[in-house]
Amino acid sequence: MKRGDKGVVRLIEIRGVSLWYCKEFKALDNISETIEKGQAVVICGPSGSGKSSFLRCINGLEHFQEGEIVVDGVSVQGPGTDIHKLRADIGMVFQHFELYPHMTAMQNITLAPIRVGKKTKRQAEEKAMELLVRVGIPEQALKYPEELSGGQKQRVAIARAMAMEPKIMLFDEPTSALDPEMIKEVLDVMIDLARGGMTMVVVTHEMGFAREVANEIVFMDEGKIIEKGSNRSFFDNPKNERTRQFLSRILI
């Protein structure tokens, strides 16, 4: 963990990361980005631009060939790194929820704390209940994912990701698979998290969310970061032509 000039903590440092699939397709092209503690960074861009790959590199779900990512002082692909320990500090929420269908909401949330966090079942369940209250669905604790609506599933998934008390939360298009009327209930939880000081990296096209809480917005295309800027400057004064085109297409 390094402290910058203004006393800020650089929680995620990404330096010159490149990623190829099958040695031919370059999914990420020399990506560099620094994310400070407590920041919410929104990543947007057309599909296939490498946003999800970028996110998955941060918690080591994807193996990149060049560059370095340091999370909380630990190099993700460093030789001595305990990747499982590092991942426990990084919560992740997926587009298609990926709740475990054979477990209740409660079991989904408590699996990692019991198996990885070595908490007792009771401690884990108390914590899970707190989180379910926080995401607004304590009454769904004993239901199976198939009995929940999309919005409820995603809120359980957020609670599951929070259960290990992570330092960072990654969101991979968390509202893209939701019916329109359920998007808000998920965004509200995420806004609440951001305001609570959680460090977040969010891949999303919800520009309303970006305007509201993002400290920085990153625009990606063809595996490269095309433009990044603060909340205000990105929307009001995009510099790059492709950014402008993209924004005009999604901000109807």
Binding site: H84, A88, M92, E98, L99, L111, A112, R160, M164
Partner: peptide, 21 residues
């Protein structure tokens, strides 16, 4: 689905724990 493995891994579970649970 591959996403189930990713979800389990992202919680810090090992290969064995992911497979088993």
């Amino acid at each position: 689905s591959r996403g189930q493995t990713m979800a389990a891994y992202s919680g810090g579970l090992t290969f064995y724990e992911t497979t088993r649970y």
